[in-house]
Design a protein around this nucleic acid. Structure first.
Lengths: 339, 339
DNA sequence: ATGAAAGCGCTAACAT
DNA sequence: ATGTTAGCGCTTTCAT
């Protein structure tokens, strides 16, 4: 088991100083030509790689960032991660994935990783701050970017979409198709994103002077199975809806599933709209009409803001709002003729 | 912007030496009681966290492992990651995600991270080694565990499933339902996993003395859209199959989609079986019959082997084979009466 | 039970 | 253009 070479091994081989090797390898442009390429050659030959712990200790930075999500099992984040990773790589950074599972301990653990030098910055997608930090007001100024979610009064930069407007648009699409009985399966309320989507639905209904009968707002939790159950409940209503707007795609999948199960045609009997345009939304049958977020762009944008922050730059505190697009696919259609 | 506290700050506050603080915080049991709790108190009060770069440099380990996959956008890996992460956390390790996108440069980059102290070990799920390393035979002995895939003659420990037997079982299930015309949409051949699944199908067919007409083996690539196209091709055959075994769930989704599109009933006209039991397999309509892998278990098992390796322990080179289960759901049924 | 001192491997300030 | 030197913050001998 041969030892990994150290910088001084490379230096000795050529009779130069470690400093020169360091300069040569860092591309500082301070090393003259005969020496430079000989160093590069030997480094390659020995397969030398600078030890990152030593470098990080010396430079006081880790060249890594943390991307913290609520549930790493949710594929939605993968696309965002791809964008983050791409921007990070271009800047020479690595990305560490953090998974909180909504556990406050883990949430604050990841903040600790900022302090202990594990990472230079963080992209936070959990929608909340550790209570401890928030209480002591020591969040402002940290190299943290909030993405997807909103954290009010945090003093942190945000990258997000306009959940309210996107939901409103989605519901308007249903209204334009002639639907008047439009129900909503919400996300976990009163959580911010869910609330905005719910309010967008309400606004669209109010804007078209459509009534919202009792039971048309079903409290969900973004989960597929819950969507299925709640859809069933909607169908059992005395006046069931002809269209259902779901707070996310998973619950929309559940709704479509329940409709199939009951032999109701989608969209001929009931239209369904989702939100997020996750992986496979296009693949179910019929393909899901849903609000598409520019996930990779959100990731990239978040990362560039974070790099800016890390570099000590000032960053706008007005949220960056990325555009959404309503993907009209197969689960929405004209309202059935009134019975 | 107050500076982060250092170990000597904690030490000074109490008039003890940094060494004592280090010992107290590491739970070495070498610090006596009056001192111990006072150190712990002050550390908490100052919110002190040891700098990881310094610690890693000194201890020569990073307490991180690398989990390298081919495509981070594939949700299949998320469940594996969950298992890896759980086992890692329990041992005090963090998990770094690596994404190669099948790019050889990136593949060897991640190996470099083993040498530069970024990570102490690696769980490799890409099914191949960087050519450079392989050529120089410097892989054996590295703290690397191969999961899901197989790398022949690598001298590395493996955690996997029996793809051949699982495929064979899945096809036998179709045969038991009375199917005789069973086609297969493969993964990317001649890649190892795809080949094993294909061979399992062939073996089941041969075992039942069933013919494999021309065109019944369609070369796919695990992608949804390809599955759709190839399913169409199968249906256009003079003697179309009554059942299709797909090398993975995505292509099965594509196949089901195409069947729907053409108005063919699933499973009444054609049965479909997938492989992997990914996220949402249960959610499509009808729910997909598929081979389920114990993904989280594979992750956990890989991680514990890796920990063993890192600790310098010897590890069996016979592959650890995890059990699979055929989940019989809604896309398979008895063969239709012959026309 | 605690302290003093060394040193992990690197980079950057300062010299030349 | 290159070498010398110091030191990042920690853990771990070794000494007491």
């Amino acid at each position: 088991m041969n030892e990994r070479p150290r910088i001084k091994d490379v230096a000795k081989r050529l009779g130069v100083s470690p400093a020169t090797v360091s300069r040569a390898l860092s591309g500082s442009g301070l090393v003259a030509e005969p020496t430079l390429s000989r160093i590069l050659d030997v480094a390659r030959e020995l397969n030398y790689r600078p030890n990152v712990s030593a470098r990080n200790l010396r430079t006081q930075r880790s060249m890594s960032v943390l991307m913290v999500v609520r549930d790493i099992g949710n594929p939605f984040y993968l696309e965002v991660m791809k964008g983050v990773e791409q921007a990070a790589r271009e800047a020479g950074y690595s990305v560490l994935m953090g998974n909180t599972e909504n556990d406050p301990d883990r949430e604050s653990e990841y903040f600790d990783m900022l302090r202990d030098g594990h990472a230079d910055g963080m992209i936070l997608m959990t929608g909340k701050l550790p209570a401890r930090l928030e209480a002591e007001g020591l969040v402002g100024g940290l190299p943290v970017v909030v993405a997807l979610e909103t954290i009010e009064d945090s003093g942190l930069p945000h990258v997000q979409i306009d959940n309210f407007a996107a939901a409103q648009d989605a519901v308007r699409h249903l209204i334009e198709l002639g639907h008047r009985r439009i129900a909503h399966i919400t996300g976990p309320l009163p959580e911010g994103m869910s609330t905005l989507r719910r309010d967008g639905w309400r606004a669209a209904m109010a804007g078209a002077k459509l009534p919202v009968p009792d039971g048309y707002e079903q409290l969900g939790d973004y989960q597929l199975h819950t969507g299925q159950v709640l859809c069933g409940r909607l169908l059992d209503l005395p006046e069931p809806p002809t269209a259902i707007f779901c707070a996310n795609d998973e619950s929309a999948f559940g709704a479509v599933h329940e409709l199939h199960r009951r032999g109701r045609a989608v969209p001929d009997d009931v239209s369904v709209v989702g939100f997020d345009d996750i992986y496979l939304s296009e693949a179910i049958f019929p393909p899901l009409t849903t609000v598409s977020q520019p996930r990779a762009d959100i990731g990239r944008e978040s990362m560039s803001m974070l790099l800016e922050l890390i570099a000590g730059g000032k960053v706008a505190l007005d949220p960056i709002v990325m555009p959404t697009e309503l993907k009209i696919r197969g689960t929405t259609g004209p309202v059935a003729k009134p019975n």
